[in-house]
């Protein structure tokens, strides 16, 4: 009898959220420098404003590091308790769900609701903010489909159950 649990999926999802946050921070904030964490409220016009934004970028990265660590902790706990297997589908699907969720939540709150920054800050609120949301929705959907098509019990929708 194999006990089925959602713990491995939650772990993969948390790591996926972290990966999404790191991708955003590393690619958009640091390498491409198309926006920074508060560049909508505190425009990057000189060295002081750039470095101040850099501090907020760092705090954002630190938060993503904590989320990733929580994901690793959840995976460790699930493995230790034998709470279901971390199948490839659960891992990949969970990553995609987490990353997609990050894009959707961060995009809706930071880009659209608060306007603390926009994807391409030089254009302000633009089509790129919606591309970011669409990208997140596509990842979320793809992840959900992958997990759903996984082996029985990969993502139980009902009460906790057992499989032979």
């Amino acid at each position: 009898m194999v006990t089925v649990s959602r713990q491995p999926l939650a772990a993969a999802m948390a790591i996926g959220i972290g990966l999404g946050g790191f991708f955003d921070g590393i690619i958009f904030h640091q390498i491409l420098q198309v926006h920074n964490m508060l560049s909508g409220w505190l425009p990057v016009t000189d060295l002081v404003s750039a470095k101040t934004n850099m501090v907020w970028d760092g705090l954002f990265h630190a938060a993503m590091w904590v989320v990733t660590l929580a994901g690793v902790g959840l995976a460790w706990r699930a493995g230790r308790r034998g709470d279901g297997a971390m199948t490839t589908r659960t891992l990949v699907g969970g990553f995609l769900i987490g990353w997609g969720l990050f894009n959707l939540v961060e995009g809706l709150i930071d880009h659209h609701l608060l306007g603390v920054h926009h994807v391409y800050e030089a254009m302000g609120a633009s089509i790129w903010d919606f591309v970011f949301l669409g990208w997140g929705a596509a990842m979320l959907l793809a992840g959900w489909l992958i997990v759903r098509r996984g082996p029985a019990g990969a993502m139980p929708t009902g009460p906790r159950r057992t499989a032979p």
Binding site: R6, L9, L59, A63, V67, D110, R160
Partner: peptide, 26 residues
């Protein structure tokens, strides 16, 4: 205000993880 704005998405993301991690009651 800036700190709250930077942290704003975190509770939502954390809640999503908790909801998925929680085992439904029998």
């Amino acid at each position: 205000l800036n700190a709250a704005a930077v942290a704003a998405p975190l509770p939502v993301l954390a809640l999503a993880i908790v909801l998925v991690a929680r085992e439904p009651r029998r």
